[in-house]
Simulated assay, not measured.
Amino acid sequence: MQDWIRMPSLEAWLERAKDDNFVDARNCGLVDAVQSGWYQSDSNELFVDFPISAQDIVVDVGCGGGGATLFCANRGAHVVFTDVMAEKIDALVARVASTPARACQGIVSDSCPLPLENNFATRIMAMEMLEHVEDPAEVLRELVRIGQPGALYLLSVPDAAAERLQQGFAPPEYYQRPNHIHIFEREDFSRLVQDAGLEIVNTATYGFFWTLWMCMYWVCKEAVADSPEKFSHDAAQPPYFPLLDDWASVWYRLISLPQAAPMRKALDEALPKSQIIIARKPG
């Protein structure tokens, strides 16, 4: 098997990562996200047009690793975060404890219903989670219920173009429970949000880097499927295939050039990982 497809041990990967020229896909993805409008520290916007202040009460539904929650907590907001996995909630509670968040509450919940009162929050996030749930409309109704009049919503789901592309070679279980059981066309996603009673403020797309990364991941995983070497790996965590490290290195260096910004924006529109809606609760 070629070296560029062979999965290294975690120890070997970490040793390679010590090189000053090594690019971790997660770091590359963060730089790409900031350039796309995420984590705007200077303006305290989690995403463009979604500002966070210490006066906000933020609810992050399906918080996952908690990057969005931590951004809000570091601005002193009251943060509430939910996930179906208790270990993620416990880990995030510990991390938020070292931030200036004025209050913190972690909840293990499938969001139907959310154990929060009506008109509770000023900022509500549900990112990359609606594609997993049985009834996205029901979850959105819960999100609307807990928002104060005028509350802002940051909602994202995988983009349909990238999802359809990967259907040709991703494993079938990627589109089965508990993974991506819904594919949202952009118009359908907007309609779903509006039907829940929200007003759309802005829409965006981003994540071409991750779309190509995942495509390469599926190909690499299939290439070693019949290998005598044991292979069981979470795509989100290292070690990564050397070919994926090469892609991260190329993209990182490319987007470091100011001249690449129009290209990145065009690719984020044509084949994004995610589609984003910022919405407001009337009133």
Rank of each mutant, 00 (worst) to 15 (best):
Q2G: 00
I5E: 06
R6N: 10
K18S: 12
D19F: 06
V23C: 06
A25F: 15
G29R: 11
L30T: 14
V31W: 09
V34M: 15
Q40E: 15
D42P: 00
S43D: 08
F47A: 08
I52R: 13
V58T: 10
V61D: 05
C63N: 03
L70P: 04
L70Y: 11
H78Y: 11
F81G: 04
D83L: 08
D83C: 02
M85H: 12
K88E: 05
K88H: 08
I89D: 01
A94G: 02
R95M: 04
R95S: 13
V96E: 09
V96Q: 03
A97R: 09
A97G: 01
A97D: 08
S98L: 10
S98C: 05
A101Y: 07
R102H: 03
A103E: 09
A103W: 06
C104Y: 03
C104R: 12
I107L: 13
V108A: 07
D110H: 02
S111G: 13
C112Q: 13
C112F: 06
L114Y: 00
P115D: 10
E117N: 09
T122L: 04
A126P: 00
M127G: 10
P136K: 05
P136A: 10
A137D: 07
A137L: 06
E138Q: 14
V139E: 01
V139Y: 00
L140K: 01
E142S: 03
E142F: 02
P149N: 10
L154G: 10
P158T: 09
P158E: 11
A161M: 11
A162P: 00
R164K: 08
F169V: 04
A170Y: 03
P171G: 09
Y174D: 12
Y175H: 08
Q176N: 08
I183W: 02
E187G: 01
S190L: 07
R191C: 04
L192S: 00
Q194K: 01
T205K: 09
Y206Q: 15
F208N: 03
L212H: 09
Y217C: 12
V219E: 09
E222Q: 15
S227T: 05
S227A: 14
H233W: 14
H233A: 13
Y240R: 07
Y240E: 03
P242V: 04
P242D: 11
D245R: 08
S249L: 14
L257I: 02
Q259N: 12
A261C: 00
A261D: 06
M263E: 03
R264M: 15
L267K: 02
E269T: 12
S274Q: 14
S274R: 14
Q275G: 10
I278A: 02
R280S: 09
R280P: 03
K281E: 00
K281R: 07
P282A: 10
G283M: 10
